[in-house]
Amino acid sequence: MVLNNMKTKIRAWIELLRWDKPTGRLILIWPAAWALWLAPIAPPTPSIFIMVVLGGLAVSAAGCIANDLWDRHIDPLVERTRDRPLANNRISNSAAIILLIFALCCALEIVLCLPTQVRSLSITLASFAIIPILLYPSAKRWLVLPQIVLAFCWGFAVLIPWGMITGNISTDFTLWGCWLSTLLWTFGFDTAYAMSDRRDDAAIGIKSSALTFGRYVGLIVGTCYGLAGIIIAIIANSQELNGGFWLFWGVTFGVMIKEAISLDCNERPRYFYSQHFTRQANLGGLLLLALLIGRAT
């Protein structure tokens, strides 16, 4: 009995952190890895890469907890989220807040372990990142395009690793091009993901870009993916990556556009949009593979 209760509790904690859904962690890690392999000092050392991954997991955990705390009264009204641990009271609010603070402390500890020459910049960037990460879940209450806030959260996944490896945030086109591509890609895939909740969101008065764009949502998502691909191509051309990169780049963004075209204003099963999200995570990894190959010679 005690063992079963412990297993149930552990399962609830894993769900709160979203560790049972690795796709959401990967889709954050990929832009960070893009930045590391596009930076002037590439590839990164194994220690820097590991710290970026661990930091991403800690911040992602904090963001998921903050999201569920904000939405604990809304989630029970949405089919996709009604079984979340805070929504069905499997975890208390106070326990979730303690875990949120712990996750943020873990992220801070990772930053404090960085070399002295890059530590100050990384702390500054991480401090600025915390604001949109903790406030993003509230955006759906007051902003017609709340996915913009999430996109800026993802943008820090580019800025912080870049600062960790270079020690500065310059006007380098590679940096800001990668940042903008990440914003566009994130806004696109999160808009597509929000399509699964359109009916529930409309019923309870929650805002989303999927609702705001209406029948044009597929066009907007496709435009975001297309622009992200063009910017990455300009960066790759400026860095003279080899031909292997272009093969994988073409496949990655070709499939992204195909995925966007499949989005329309007609209602589809919820799993359709979850599959779109999963495929975007896979394509983000494919783009990283393209960069690895492009840097190989």
Rank of each mutant, 00 (worst) to 15 (best):
P269D: 15
S120L: 12
A87V: 05
D83Q: 14
C113P: 00
E267D: 12
C105N: 03
Y273K: 02
D172L: 03
P31N: 11
D71E: 05
A236D: 09
F277N: 05
R119G: 09
A87D: 10
L287H: 13
P269F: 03
I97P: 00
G167F: 06
H73K: 14
A12G: 05
C64L: 08
S138Y: 14
F152S: 02
R270D: 13
L100F: 14
I74S: 10
I257V: 15
W185E: 07
G177F: 05
L114V: 07
A103R: 05
I98S: 11
G24E: 06
V144D: 07
L183S: 10
V53L: 14
K258P: 01
L241Y: 13
W246M: 07
I231S: 05
A203C: 05
I10G: 00
T252F: 01
L175M: 08
T23A: 15
I101V: 15
D264R: 07
K207A: 08
I131K: 07
E259Q: 15
L247G: 14
D83C: 04
L241Q: 02
L125Q: 05
L287C: 02
G205V: 06
L86V: 09
I101T: 13
A236M: 02
G284N: 12
Y216L: 07
T186D: 06
W162F: 03
L241D: 02
V53H: 04
P146K: 06
T223A: 15
C265R: 01
W179F: 15
D20I: 03
L159K: 03
I293Q: 11
A233K: 00
H73Q: 13
C64H: 13
A42C: 10
G222I: 04
T81C: 14
L227S: 06
G218N: 04
L16C: 12
S262N: 10
L114C: 05
L17I: 11
F277I: 03
P146M: 09
V149H: 06
H73F: 12
T252K: 01
D200M: 09
A12D: 11
R11M: 08
C265F: 12
Q239D: 00
F248D: 00
V59S: 05
P161Y: 04
S122V: 04
I261L: 13
I206A: 11
S262H: 09
P269C: 03
R198L: 06
L180S: 10
L17H: 08
H73A: 02
N4Y: 08
L175V: 04
Y216T: 01
R80H: 09
W34C: 09
N5T: 03
K258M: 07
I50S: 14
C64A: 12
N88D: 13
I261G: 01
